[in-house]
Design a protein around this nucleic acid. Structure first.
Length: 584
DNA sequence: CCCCCTTTGAAGGGA
DNA sequence: TCCCTTCAAAGGGGG
């Protein structure tokens, strides 16, 4: 956490957190040999989601994911890097399609691939993700299924692009790269690749340092081409910057630039056509629409890039009006968000779940299960994103966005109702997550909460890594019943908590469900945490009984419990009682 | 149609 | 400093 580091060095942050993880990793290693054991552990640890016994469907991806965890981190990491290297090498060689696919990416991961494009021609989120992964390859001549972006027939680019096919050999992180494509400047003619960009503040051209560039925040168009991506280590396409221009979506002044459908989709994901015209007030001096900038009304929804504006079902209207309003500059994504973006599609593909809330729970668990190196990558990426963002929008404050979203639920804390009080004190939660089991949580399974993340090494890399301690685990089951409102887990003090207690309580909570009883629709387990800060995240929604997988119902194995004890003494004291919740 | 839900992390403001 | 709140992405679900 930032606090630990003190100003600039947020990178060093998460040490504490990481430390603890290490040990566990070793255990994992052992465990890995026995899959079943592993699973049990998972169940316990995470308590929520377990892999279904029969997870064949997801096996590929899981294995891939798991793989790293089963071995020493360093080794796995190296392995991963090898993939990258390989991918890069092949790319350079022009052998894109020959390269072995990345194990972690099952060929067919996209459930909704069938409908990658929205009715209006825009890509569905998942599709987008894949495209992102794939885009680096798009310009390869002759690649089947890929339309030459340059010869856009907008209409068709659409839907048929085999989005997924090339993804396999791409590392999961590659999607992040995508953003680099977003570098385009609708309004500004590229100074052609001139590396210079205007300093937002001074307006003086300056040459960006590669480290400054973020895929998410495209700088001037010209800059794009020559800069290395911050994440170059896992960017195969590095050195082959592309200028994305949505074929149909916006008219790019520079048709000559290579672009293809997928790219356009990428762009669209962050830039709506409306954004094409830089808002007058845009903070950008460059006048470049930034991914982070969203028209208030529009909200970065994908709008069919491929289709002529007139065809757009929604927002055909040029947003020029909206431009009047101040552009909404989005917050830079944090490490977890980056991770989510990348992994969501995968998780969705593996799971039957579609609800983001559930998916996010899984992702949260997976996040914890990541090795420190892996997390470090994201932290680093996030750090760069923040830096870049700050450079691009010097005057921007996160506060600026406050209130833009209407939603925001407020906390319940203040007004807790008396009635709930009892419940709340217990912190009961219902698991939302139906079943991780089915989806599995990854590999990491074991690791996840218990072991987690961070080792010092990782910590080093991760800037702000909050200390995650295991506290989370501690409260594996949180429960709330349905809440009246919603609960927030404010407990998390990301940073502050230093240690142990705070950090992530969340993920663990879900686990409880796994142990549920068969008869009850949802199960809640009281956690003793009532005290000070609630750490347990409360899950507001009960899981539909139907969604529970049989495997989830099985009680935690002794093994788990043991594990829990060993790891979290704190919580040990608290009895895990299963409470059934009558909700459904 | 809009907001909720859910996740982690970052950031800002108040005490 | 600590604590709290909001927002970032995403998309099904619910009102």
């Amino acid at each position: 956490m930032p606090q630990l580091n003190g100003g600039g060095g947020d990178d060093l942050g998460a040490n504490d957190e990481m430390i603890s993880f290490k040990d566990e990793g070793e255990q994992e290693e052992k465990i890995s040999e026995n899959v079943s054991a592993e699973r049990d552990l998972d169940d316990v640890k995470s308590s929520l989601v377990n892999e279904s016994e029969n997870n064949s469907s997801s096996s590929d991806s899981e294995q891939a994911e798991r793989r790293p965890q089963t071995r020493p981190d360093s080794e796995s990491y190296e392995k991963t890097r090898d993939y990258f290297s390989e991918a890069l090498r092949r790319q350079q060689d022009g052998g894109f399609f020959k390269s072995p696919h990345y194990p972690g990416y099952p060929f067919l991961m996209i459930p909704d691939l069938t409908n990658p494009y929205l009715s209006n021609g825009s890509l569905s989120p998942s599709a987008r993700t894949y495209l992102q992964m794939k885009w680096p390859l798009l310009d390869v001549p002759g690649s089947a299924g890929l339309k030459d972006s340059r010869s856009p027939t907008p209409g068709h680019l659409s839907n048929k692009v085999p989005v997924v096919q090339h993804a396999p050999h791409v590392h999961p992180l590659t999607p992040l790269i995508t953003y680099s494509n977003e570098h385009f400047s609708p309004g500004t003619p590229p100074s052609h690749l001139s590396p210079e960009i205007l300093d937002p503040k001074t307006g003086i051209p300056r040459t960006p340092h590669p480290s400054e560039l973020s895929p998410y925040y495209p700088l001037s168009p010209g800059a794009v081409g020559s800069i290395a991506h911050p994440l170059s280590w896992f960017m195969p396409q590095q050195g082959q910057p592309m200028y994305s221009i949505p074929p149909g979506g916006f008219r790019h002044p520079y048709p000559a630039l290579a672009m293809n459908a997928s790219m356009s989709s990428l762009v669209s994901s962050r830039f709506s056509p409306h954004m094409v015209t830089p808002p007058p007030h845009s903070l950008h001096q460059t006048g470049i629409p930034h991914p982070a900038i969203v028209s208030p009304a529009i909200k970065q929804e994908p709008s069919g890039d491929n289709i002529s504006p007139s065809m757009h079902a929604k927002s055909p209207v040029p947003p020029k009006k909206e431009e009047d309003k101040k552009p909404h500059i989005k917050k830079p994504l944090n490490a977890f968000m980056l991770y989510m973006k990348e992994m969501r599609a995968k998780v969705v593909a593996e799971c039957t779940l579609k609800e983001s809330a559930a998916i996010n729970q899984i992702l949260g668990r997976r996040w914890h299960s990541l090795s420190r190196e892996e997390q470090a990558k994201y932290y680093e990426l996030a750090r760069k994103e923040r830096q870049l963002h700050s450079q691009l929008y010097p005057g921007w404050s996160a506060r600026d966005n406050y209130g833009k979203r209407k939603k925001r639920k407020r906390e319940n804390k203040p007004d807790s109702k008396p009635e709930d009080f009892s419940i709340r004190s217990k912190k009961q939660c219902v698991q939302y997550l139906p079943s991780e089991k089915m989806c599995d949580s990854p590999a990491s399974s074991h690791g996840s909460m218990l072991d987690s993340p961070a080792t010092p090494s990782a910590a080093l890399a991760s800037p702000a890594a909050p200390a995650a301690t295991h506290s989370e685990q501690a409260q594996p089951l949180s429960l709330t019943t349905k809440p009246e409102g919603r609960m927030h887990h404010h407990f998390s003090l990301p940073g502050k908590a230093s240690g142990s207690s705070s950090s992530s309580s969340s993920s663990s909570s879900s686990s409880s469900s796994s142990s549920s009883s068969s008869s009850q629709p949802t199960i809640s387990i009281p956690i003793g945490t009532s005290g000070s800060q609630s750490n347990a995240p409360l899950l507001t929604r009960p899981i539909p009984f139907t969604s529970l997988h049989p495997s989830m119902l099985s009680p935690p194995s002794p093994f788990h419990q043991a594990a829990l004890h060993s790891h979290h003494a704190l919580f040990q004291s608290q009895p895990l009682s299963l409470v059934t919740k009558p909700t459904e």
